[in-house]
Design a protein around this nucleic acid. Sequence first.
DNA 1: TCCATATTTCAATATTCGTTGAATTATGGA
DNA 2: TCCATAATTCAACGAATATTGAAATATGGA
Lengths: 114, 114
Amino acid sequence: MEKTEAVAALGALAQDNRLDVFRLLVQAGPDGMPAGAVAEALDVAPNTLTFHFDRLRAAGLVTVRRDGRSMIYTAQFETMNALLGFLTENCCGGAPCTATVGCKPARKRAKLPA
Amino acid sequence: MEKTEAVAALGALAQDNRLDVFRLLVQAGPDGMPAGAVAEALDVAPNTLTFHFDRLRAAGLVTVRRDGRSMIYTAQFETMNALLGFLTENCCGGAPCTATVGCKPARKRAKLPA
DNA sequence: TCCATATTTCAATATTCGTTGAATTATGGA
DNA sequence: TCCATAATTCAACGAATATTGAAATATGGA
């Protein structure tokens, strides 16, 4: 990960509502959550939430897809892991001090009935 | 680490100059670096740098001490590690997925000749 | 004491950020 | 088609941010 991307990701997470949103999406796992459900869970106005989703998306921390009337937002674990990697890059004099820095979803995405 | 502290630490690192400063101090290790040396290394105006040091300090990411005319800034590894811990807290459904997320200085502080 | 160095303080400024309210777009169902 | 739901867009606003230049403070040495 480049420094510019790291700054973007850090900035995206450096805000109360957005940190809450991201953590909620991480817990939701690969299936993601509709915007409305996030708004209700965190008690944030829908338009405010759109603003924050945009920033998270710009930083590559979430993706969206439409499902009917709902927009489903999903956490991007790869970006988060890349950020963790970047942050530990300079530790311990360059030696990889953390054997495995990595975040993965709690459960596999349920295979949808074809 | 509390959410409020995490937001503060993330915000402190979410800026080009400050991220550079912090990484430089991490590489400098426990002995730290005088403000002037940081200013020269990164080509940032001294007063601008003071502003950024203040933010890093407010977030607990650095400490200062005076040495003669110089102010020596030092990275706080504990805070960085606490932040990494916080960020990985929600991964993997609550299970501690990263055996050892931790950053430690490259070399021990050189014992000054008494 | 006087001077140079190292750093901070302060005011000013342009920019970005987070939130709100009103209006708009997109989708699905009656 | 008409309506309700889900979410976004837009303009506006106050608050916070990052940088600059000028002035001030602290320390050490001649």
